[in-house]
Design a binder for these strands. Structure first.
Length: 675
DNA sequence: GGCGAATCGTCAACC
DNA sequence: ACGATTCGCC
């Protein structure tokens, strides 16, 4: 085992790498080489003869999992690297449930519902459960249900209330539909392992070494899952005195998922969950200049209740952090585009060296438009641009129906798309019938007692549609069937594309939408090339937002456009953090909810992504909901150390661009020598 | 029952 | 400013 050198590590990092047995808590400040430690530690374990397939590393985002996988692949032989399991919590749960969910009374071909599907179902349940004078906001219901599930509750606390009734109904319906939502992925996996010791034991034999990244962001269910995978069942004779091989890595200052139920006490009280851990503190920052790190420190020290730490960097020099005022959001986007262009040329940087960070997905649109216009290559991480497109959802709904005809949400989405003579009223009747008889909508469509009450023309339309689905479902499950071809044929024969073209207003829109249909079919083909998990595996990956467009533009790189949340764990030489305004960050709602500290950590995360230069921009006015509203700069900006930052107005910069670029070029050259 | 037009409500973040 | 939903007409 060659290719990695432990002597490159500082003493703390080396201790973390060499500690392979028993509980290990790594408190890793921003930029302290955390990913490097995790990958090195994995490589070290392999070199000690630990089997690659017994190692499980869990991360929060797909991006982080991918990066870790890539970095490990650079250290150890490919066949070894591939056998190490690196996945998100949700992807891990899908994997466990696809194998063992039958023990909980679901079928293995269960569908996964995203928030949109979830909302659709909840709305439907509310309308049919609520009496005339009762009102329940579906959003409120969704959040309450999610919170309940993340606390591990099985049944509603009180099913006398409308909310309780909706919760009970929602769970019952999901089970009938053979579907699970994102929260269920965790909840059901925990229940499965907890209630079925034989299953738990089997997974424990599979994964003997656990690593959890971003542990400060785990919620109670995730901690339960880790415990269930790491510790023997309390009834097992091995339980007492067992030292689980659990390594967790985290930083309380980067805890930004409180809203999702993250519980910081998981990391603060790690010793209570896994007694007697080795504790390692990583405090040297290798990423940022002292201007950037000092700015970050001056911000975060305003937060109460922190674990004491002394984060330092050896990187002197560089530029001050720029805080730039903009007249409006349009000019903000223009400025960022132009600056990136100029700096790229002046300092011979690559597009991949730049990142634009923002609080809300909606902020990226104007930058995107500018990038497209000026031909700046870019990639958007996270967000929902692709997956949320109508045509993509439609195609995936068709695919879901092939796998699980009882998936009502998918079926209802496509039952009359394109129009095939099954009207809303008919669909409504079918849904009612299915509720009354406790079956799926598809089974209702196949039920003569239901069909008998309908007009002959409607009966015909339904029979034709059901036969159409059945025919392709059979083909899909034939041995050696070419699944991408079956899906393609299903779409072609459905007349979906012709209908899509008809509804498009411009030829450009049609080309765009048709392309995303082609893209999604093509990415299923590429998926078939690299995986044996078939359409089911493909849909799982799509639902978990993984590797969306792996065939083109994606791997060419480009400027990264990313939300602050999704940026955690990443780093870039040049960072532009836009929309640093009161109301955006800290977000207005955080003040009502009393979570301003978390907003401060979020900005801290953003600032600490930058290696060499950082610019924070804010606008004097911004378009919101279509109309322009005045804005003021974020109160967080006042907390930044004035020695380390430089306040500018966009006008000043435009007046003297040449000197600016020349100076920047010199700094760039110095940095290149240091590297 | 189907279609285009007007109107409504949304933008907090992730899997 | 955009997509979803509802309305009113054929």
């Amino acid at each position: 085992m060659a290719g990695f050198r432990l002597f490159d590590l500082n003493p703390e990092q080396e201790l973390a790498v060499r500690t392979t047995e028993g509980p290990l808590l790594i408190l890793a400040g921003a930029g302290s080489g955390k990913t490097r430690v995790i990958t090195m530690r994995t490589a070290f374990m392999l070199s000690q003869g630990i089997a690659a397939d017994s190692i499980l590393a869990v991360t929060f985002t797909n991006k982080a999992a991918t990066e870790m996988r890539e970095r490990l692949a650079a250290l150890v032989p490919e066949d070894q690297a591939k056998k190490v399991t690196m996945s998100t919590f949700h992807a891990l749960c899908v994997r466990i449930l696809r194998q063992d969910i039958e023990a909980l009374g679901y079928k293995k071909n269960f569908s996964i519902y995203d928030e949109g599907d979830q909302m659709g179902l909840i709305k439907k349940i509310i309308t049919r459960t609520a009496s005339r004078d009762e009102k329940l906001d579906p959003h409120v219901a969704k959040n309450a249900i999610s919170k309940a599930k993340n606390n591990g509750w099985r049944a509603p606390e009180d099913d006398k209330t409308l909310l309780g009734a909706v919760f009970a109904r929602y769970n019952a319906d999901l089970k009938t539909l053979n579907a699970v939502d994102f929260d269920d992925l965790l909840l059901l996996t925990v229940r499965l392992l907890n209630d079925h010791p034989a299953v738990q034991e089997r997974w424990q034999r599979r994964f003997k070494y656990l690593m959890v990244d971003e542990f400060q962001d785990t919620n109670r269910l995730q901690l339960d899952l880790v415990s269930l995978l790491a510790k023997p069942h309390p009834t097992s004779p091995e339980f007492a005195g067992m030292r689980p091989n659990v390594a967790v890595v985290g930083d309380d200052d980067q805890s930004i998922y409180g809203w999702r139920g993250a519980d910081v006490t998981n990391i603060l009280e790690f010793e209570a969950h896994f007694p007697g851990p080795t504790v390692v503190k990583l405090e040297q920052n290798y990423r940022s200049t002292n201007f950037i790190l000092g700015t970050a420190n001056s911000l975060i020290k305003n937060n109460p209740r922190r674990r004491p730490k002394n984060l330092w960097s050896a990187k002197d020099g560089g530029e001050k952090v720029k805080i730039i005022a903009m007249p409006d959001d349009r000019q903000e986007a223009e400025f960022i585009t132009e600056e990136i262009n100029a700096r790229k040329t002046a300092e011979a940087q690559k597009w991949e060296d730049f990142a634009v960070l923002f609080r809300m997905n909606a902020q990226s649109r104007q930058v995107e438009e500018n990038f497209r216009r000026l031909r700046v290559p870019y990639r958007i991480i996270g967000g929902k641009s692709f997956f949320d497109r109508r045509e993509v959802k439609d195609i995936l709904a068709y695919a879901s129906c092939l796998l699980n005809v009882d998936d009502d949400v998918a079926l209802l989405r496509i039952i009359n798309t394109p129009a095939r003579g099954i009207s809303d009223t008919t669909v409504e009747k079918a849904t009612e019938y299915s509720i009354r008889t406790h079956t799926s909508v598809f089974k209702a469509l196949r039920d003569d007692r239901f069909l008998g009450a309908l007009r002959a023309a409607t009966q015909n339309a339904i029979e034709k549609f059901a036969a159409f689905l059945d025919e392709h479902e059979t083909k899909l499950h034939e041995p050696l069937s070419n699944q991408p071809a079956v899906l393609r044929k299903l779409i072609e024969e459905s007349g979906y594309l012709a209908d899509l073209q008809r509804t498009c207003k411009t030829p450009e829109e049609w080309m765009d939408r048709e392309r995303s249909v082609r893209d999604i079919l093509a990415s299923f083909e590429t998926f078939e090339g690299r995986s044996d998990k078939g359409l089911q595996g493909f849909l799982d990956e799509m639902m978990l937002r993984q590797e969306r467009e792996d065939d083109k533009e994606d791997d060419e790189g480009g400027v990264t456009l990313i939300t602050l949340h999704a940026s955690k764990g990443l780093e870039f030489p040049h960072v532009y953090l836009m929309g640093v305004e009161e109301g955006v960050i800290p977000h207005d709602r955080s003040k009502l909810e009393g979570t301003v500290d978390e907003e401060r950590r979020l900005l801290y995360v953003g600032i600490t992504r930058a290696q060499r230069t950082l610019a924070l921009t804010w606008c004097r006015q911004r378009a919101k909901y279509g109309s322009v509203v005045p804005c003021i700069s974020s109160s967080f900006l006042k907390e930044l150390d004035p020695e380390l930052v430089e306040h500018r107005d966009v006008g000043d910069i435009i007046n003297k661009p040449v000197a600016e670029e020349a100076a920047a070029a010199k700094f760039g050259a110095i940095f290149d020598m240091l590297d």
